[in-house]
Design a protein around this nucleic acid. Structure first.
Lengths: 213, 213
DNA sequence: TAGATTGTTAATCGATTAACAATC
DNA sequence: TAGATTGTTAATCGATTAACAATC
């Protein structure tokens, strides 16, 4: 019943990876069919919401009384999320967080391949982090074009984030994943996802305060 | 006009830190008053939304025609977000990401002080990361109680995340900030914020695909 | 058959945006 | 005064949840 991808809500899209992780777990435990009720219980969600979300992704209907065939459902999710369709990306800012991301091989299973990093710091340029070369910033445009890169990760201090984003966009990058604490002004046709840890923290602190103070 | 904190929506709460960052920038540039229109333009938001958000936080009304007094507004935001009210926290999992967080001193300005880290890896236990000691996991309950810690950060591999969360809760921690790709089952009275990078990535990839494929 | 489960339509809830009176 | 701006009420939009017929 797979819907047109543009019709799937942002909220649904962001839940899909957690469904898939749960399905992998069930699969590892030898489960062969799964119901919306089971998924909902496992992830603290509403069963109706699970059925709606699954309907966006799955190519075959679930069976009343039994639920969904697990292997099929996993394949549908992987396919929908493009986990087998690897995309090359680059990263700018080989500092603490950049280093951690370069060292983390887990993005590969999400279909993300970090080709290289870029930095302005002489001390890291030319080095190798987890097998990934760190190049001088000035080489970014050339290599982005050569590799056909469309997604860039920003892990630089906030005061440099806008400048780096502008360089990425000029080089032809179409989507930016930023971990810098800075609002980026970008052309409307560039996709942007900003990880704002201060925002998360504000939410968590307030929950904590309202709960026990 | 400061509203009861529990009435402020999650969405508003998560925007507050980005407002404050923008206000700091204006202050640095010598600006003394700011209008909702200006903030909205700077952060790509709707001016009405800005006025509503500001009303949740500010203790004085804005002036028609001129806007808000910048210094006052900054103080109100800092106060509301508790940035001067430092909270001690601990972190479990001194791997790549944990290391990056321990090395990052920027959380201090958000009122977060990472006291120490815990791990099970013999190679990091006893070491010091950015002046913060790494202790054996078994010492967590004792130190959490001694220091009165109420917030814990989880940066362990996903297969250990639930176990670590259970240990934290048993030790008296009331809020968990998790970076592990795993849904955590927790008592209802524990606050949880899960940073799901796979979810962010799903959103970004889909924007990219719908835009240019 | 009876009962658990799916898929969908309708109702509700929450957040954003539009409209507008009040104000400096 | 005229005009820009605030603060609030009403309308809209989007996402979640409830209700329920269809189905194996």
């Amino acid at each position: 019943m797979q819907a047109d991808k543009s019709e799937v809500s942002k909220a649904t899209l962001m839940r899909l990876p957690s469904y898939l992780r749960y399905l992998y777990e069930l699969d590892k435990n030898g489960v062969t069919t799964v119901s919306s009720t089971m998924i909902a219980a496992g992830l603290d969600l509403n069963p109706v919401q699970v059925r709606k979300d699954v309907a966006c992704v799955s190519t075959v209907a679930g069976k009343p009384k039994t639920g969904y065939a697990l292997k099929e459902l996993i394949a549908d999710f992987e396919n929908y999320l493009g986990y087998h369709n690897t995309r090359d990306v680059i990263l700018v800012g080989a500092g603490g967080l950049g280093h951690a991301i370069l060292s983390y091989d887990g993005f590969k299973k999400y279909g993300l391949n970090v080709m290289a990093a870029f930095d302005v710091d002489e001390n890291v340029i030319g080095r190798d982090i987890n097998g990934k070369p760190v190049y001088e910033m000035s080489r970014l445009p050339e290599l982005v074009k050569r590799w056909g890169i469309r997604l860039g990760i920003i892990t630089v201090p906030s005061q440099s984030a806008q400048e780096v984003a502008d360089i990425m966009v000029a080089a032809g990058i179409k989507a930016i994943w930023s971990f810098s604490a800075k609002h980026l002004n970008l052309p409307a046709d560039i996709a942007l996802k900003h990880e704002d840890l201060a925002a998360s923290l504000a939410l968590l602190r307030m929950q904590l305060v309202s709960m026990t103070d």
